[in-house]
Design a protein around this nucleic acid. Structure first.
Lengths: 107, 107
DNA sequence: GGGATCGATAACTCGGCGGCTATTGATTGA
DNA sequence: TCAATCAATAGCCGCCGAGTTATCGATCCC
């Protein structure tokens, strides 16, 4: 029962992890070391967060020698925008129904 | 340092809670009893989830006799769309910078 | 008034998750 | 070759949050 929305919301719910993703969006590709320096947590913690982000498809990793570069994958945010649009659509649909009802009552 | 994004992502990260919100979006105003009947968890659990949703501004409650009606507040989703748009904007901005660089190199 | 229903609160349990340190594997360079 | 650096993994710990049952307050109906 665990769908794409679950994974996305869950992944982005942690502030530290979301901050890492935001940084990758702002500044582009970064090494683990660079990300660790500004994260306020230990390097293993950052590696774990990157693993979770990668699992959610939100980042890509590129190995270059002994360092790993991570970059944001914005396409992975699509289910999120889809979801919000769907919620708005549901809302709008019910509003339309109400409007139809009122129109019928007018006649 | 806890902003609107934190509250929203945290609130929506739980599947049970998000399902309750989705149902309110789909079907409009519902009583706690009606929500409990379909949620798969106990009534106190549902009440707690509704409390969290209300705290995030995602739902409104309306008291009528001994039952409480809850309805979705779609406006509260705005920070979410703002956030995703911002991420895309960062990405686009860096892309523009690259484009500028390439243009300058062309000359 | 008194039993019944509705929803919120209290009090507790338990599993998962985010953090840490220590270690390993791989790569670099002196 | 060997020390040093980088990132991932292992192993552990503490806490928060989602779930439960029990209870309370309030309202409805007989």
């Amino acid at each position: 029962m665990t769908n794409a929305h679950d994974v996305l919301f869950r992944t982005l719910s942690d502030p530290t992890r979301r901050a890492i993703f935001e940084r990758l969006c702002r500044e582009g590709e970064q090494t683990v070391g660079a990300l660790t320096a500004q994260s306020g947590v230990s390097q293993p913690a950052v590696s774990k967060h990157l693993g979770v982000l990668r699992h959610a498809g939100l980042v890509r990793d590129r190995h270059e020698g002994r360092q790993t570069h991570y970059s944001a994958q914005l396409g992975a945010l699509a289910p999120l925008t889809d979801w919000t649009n769907q919620m708005k659509a549901f809302w709008q649909s019910r509003f339309d129904d109400l409007e139809n009802l009122l129109n019928r009552m007018d006649q």
